[in-house]
Computed example of a mutant assay.
Amino acid sequence: MNLRKLLLTLGLICSVAIMADAQQFKALVFTKTAGFRHQSIPNAVTAMKKMGEKQVFSVYTSEDPRVLSEESLMKYDVLILISTTGTIFDETTRASLQKFVQSGKGVVGVHAAADSEYDWPWYNKMMGGYFLAHPAQQTLRLEVVDQDHPSTWHLPKNWMWTDELYEYKDINPDLNVLIKADESTYKVAKGNGDNHPMAWYHEFEGGRVFYTALGHVDSAWEDDVFLKHLYGGIWYAATGHPMK
């Protein structure tokens, strides 16, 4: 190899190393389903890759359970579960997730991440609640009750939104609720009453968890307001930066 080629090769290697170091954090997006599969998942994967490019964090997407092994999972700063359904963890990967959270890492749940792991109480407490029901897709008033979180800094007090509106059971009482659904503005299925959480966060066993109920409809993944909301939650879960 002549000197010119050697210098070009070394320059390329250095450029790749610099780009890798420049990433804020590493995110694993997991979209495996063992139940209903949301049509918006491909849109979500595309949007997450674009978000990573724009916001300078690395994104790896997969549905292969092998990425949830302890050795693999620990390479990431945040696990993002997008519309997963049913039982997606076996005993080994359940242990991996617990160690991941307890090591101080972050978890983000989007929409049907609450429709997963019904026979695993730890997951319920970690994610914050289980899916109960939803009515037909509708427009409603979302009440932003906490504007001091990165996921809500940009949101108005009243946010008009159209989506598939989840209702919940077995809600963890220790959640910090960010957004509530105003049930007087839409036709509920079973309802959660005056305290109907739609986005929340909490610290859990050493880690950080953020969840948003939004993201069922395809158009959400092209909506800048929603994507800023989601990125704020990801940034919090991945980095743990102060919220004020």
Rank of each mutant, 00 (worst) to 15 (best):
153 W>M: 01
189 A>L: 05
176 N>Q: 14
180 K>F: 09
205 E>I: 01
203 E>A: 12
170 D>C: 00
196 H>G: 10
177 V>L: 07
202 H>M: 13
203 E>H: 13
209 V>E: 11
207 G>I: 06
197 P>S: 08
170 D>K: 12
155 L>D: 14
195 N>T: 13
208 R>V: 06
202 H>C: 06
166 Y>F: 10
156 P>A: 10
174 D>N: 15
193 G>N: 11
194 D>I: 08
160 M>F: 06
211 Y>K: 06
154 H>N: 15
202 H>L: 11
196 H>Y: 10
181 A>D: 07
182 D>A: 10
176 N>V: 08
169 K>D: 13
210 F>T: 05
187 K>C: 01
207 G>E: 02
155 L>S: 11
193 G>Y: 05
210 F>I: 04
206 G>M: 08
179 I>D: 08
175 L>M: 12
210 F>S: 03
198 M>G: 00
192 N>P: 09
185 T>I: 01
165 L>C: 03
210 F>P: 04
183 E>D: 09
152 T>N: 13
181 A>G: 08
210 F>L: 01
198 M>I: 02
161 W>G: 00
150 P>T: 03
188 V>P: 00
197 P>E: 07
158 N>A: 14
212 T>C: 02
183 E>W: 02
205 E>Y: 07
199 A>C: 00
193 G>P: 08
201 Y>G: 02
156 P>F: 01
163 D>E: 06
156 P>L: 07
187 K>H: 10
152 T>I: 12
189 A>C: 07
183 E>A: 09
182 D>P: 02
201 Y>R: 05
157 K>E: 15
172 N>E: 06
189 A>G: 02
172 N>H: 09
185 T>M: 01
189 A>N: 13
153 W>L: 13
182 D>Q: 04
202 H>V: 09
163 D>V: 07
169 K>T: 14
171 I>M: 11
184 S>K: 15
194 D>L: 11
170 D>T: 06
173 P>Y: 05
160 M>E: 12
195 N>F: 13
207 G>A: 02
206 G>I: 13
208 R>M: 05
197 P>Y: 12
160 M>H: 14
169 K>Q: 15
208 R>Y: 05
186 Y>N: 01
192 N>G: 10
167 E>H: 04
184 S>C: 00
159 W>Y: 14
200 W>A: 06
197 P>Q: 12
153 W>Q: 10
186 Y>A: 03
191 G>R: 12
208 R>I: 02
179 I>C: 04
210 F>H: 04
163 D>H: 04
200 W>E: 07
204 F>P: 00
207 G>S: 01
161 W>P: 00
156 P>V: 07
188 V>F: 00
163 D>S: 10
160 M>Y: 14
190 K>C: 04
153 W>C: 08
167 E>G: 03
191 G>D: 04
182 D>G: 03
160 M>R: 10
183 E>F: 06
202 H>T: 09
198 M>A: 07
207 G>R: 03
162 T>L: 01
204 F>Q: 09
198 M>V: 02
196 H>C: 13
187 K>M: 03
207 G>Y: 06
169 K>H: 11
167 E>M: 08
160 M>S: 10
192 N>E: 07
